[in-house]
Design a binder for these strands. Structure first.
Lengths: 189, 189
DNA sequence: GTGAACATGTAACAAGTTACATGATTGA
DNA sequence: TCAATCATGTAACTTGTTACATGTTCAC
């Protein structure tokens, strides 16, 4: 999905600046299945405003650049719906981690174990983030996609925990250190 | 991961042609977490041979272009190990399907249901493919990565089956049609 | 005889990333 | 004082995709 459609879709939920759109795909609700950089967002926004798919109102600020708040137009919604009516392409999944595991027999054991452990931590962290987002969902679409993310990340964590032996780690090494005050994943469900 | 490392990694398992490498990432063991096209594989192979990371022997064939069988050199293995010693980047996951589901409230219901059902079928098909591959794994690395794929795809299928209501589908609509003679996923485990 | 599989390769094109440029404010 | 957050934007670069070019054999 290109940057245009992405911005259009996010703006269909409500007005936003380029900066805010970036935040949403970076640490927001959508981070687990979308990505985009400023270098693709800003040009897309400018271009679509010229094309009449968006309107832009400038909010003057002191001490920092003026905010450009974008809003989707009727033409924009039409365009979005037309794009969305095409069949979605297959999900794209690329994993350097799996590639390394695939070739791990030729790599130093400690290195593999280290990468494995870090990956497990990263996956847990991302899981917790999605979980936090899921708590704030008030709408069917967002609930569905965060639920999907949660389901996949749970499966990843479980698999990594149960197959730690592959990386030469034992069960105790992959146990999650339980945070003392906040209740993590385990207690919350 | 770039096309160079990809080819190097696959060739570390054994000699292969560009065509064969493409097949492996297209319908082989690696298809669920890697992708590459001829346009990136062939130039990478040529370039790396020039760089001394690969050797190439030509097998003359009649009626079709000569086969170029590539083999990794010692320098190639060194290069590969050095690349692999860097920490892997985060997995990349992009889903147009989820994006459509996110925005589905503004889309025709029948269209959403149709896409949902097709996605479920596609995911099941890909699951079955990985499963078939998994049966042929004779080595720890390949077993690990196919197992990982299986775990994720099982989670996807389960989630899609249990949340079919979101797309306005009822339970009977998402039941897998049981093939009469071959035993599918359900019976085999 | 029609399409898929086998087999390699290039060139034009698309798309997005990275790094740079700018600069105030705020919290540790 | 140092890093992060807020805020926008561009240009060079990397990377890979798509489509084209070529041609045989085999199965349906």
């Amino acid at each position: 999905m290109n940057a245009r459609t992405l911005c259009l879709g996010i703006l269909s939920f409500g007005d936003a600046t380029g900066y805010e759109i970036k935040k949403m795909v970076e640490d927001g609700m959508f981070n687990h299945f979308i990505e985009a950089s400023y270098g693709s967002i800003y040009p897309a926004l400018t271009r679509m405003t010229e094309d009449g798919l968006l309107t832009c109102r400038e909010e003057i600020q002191t001490g920092r650049p003026d905010k450009k708040v974008y809003a989707i137009t009727l033409a924009g919604r039409t365009e979005l719906e037309s794009t969305l009516s095409e069949h979605p392409r297959d999900d794209k999944f690329k994993s350097e981690f799996l590639f390394i595991m695939l070739l791990s027999k030729n790599l130093p054991r400690t290195h593999v174990a280290q990468i494995y452990l870090k990956r497990l931590e990263d996956v847990r962290a991302e899981y917790d983030m999605i979980r936090k987002m899921a708590g704030e969902c008030d709408e069917a679409g967002t609930r569905f996609v965060t639920g999907y993310g949660l389901a996949i990340f749970e499966a990843k964590i479980k698999y990594l925990e149960q197959n730690a032996g592959f990386a030469g780690l034992d069960a105790s090494a992959v146990m999650e250190s339980v945070a003392p005050q906040t209740n993590g994943r385990d207690a919350a469900e």
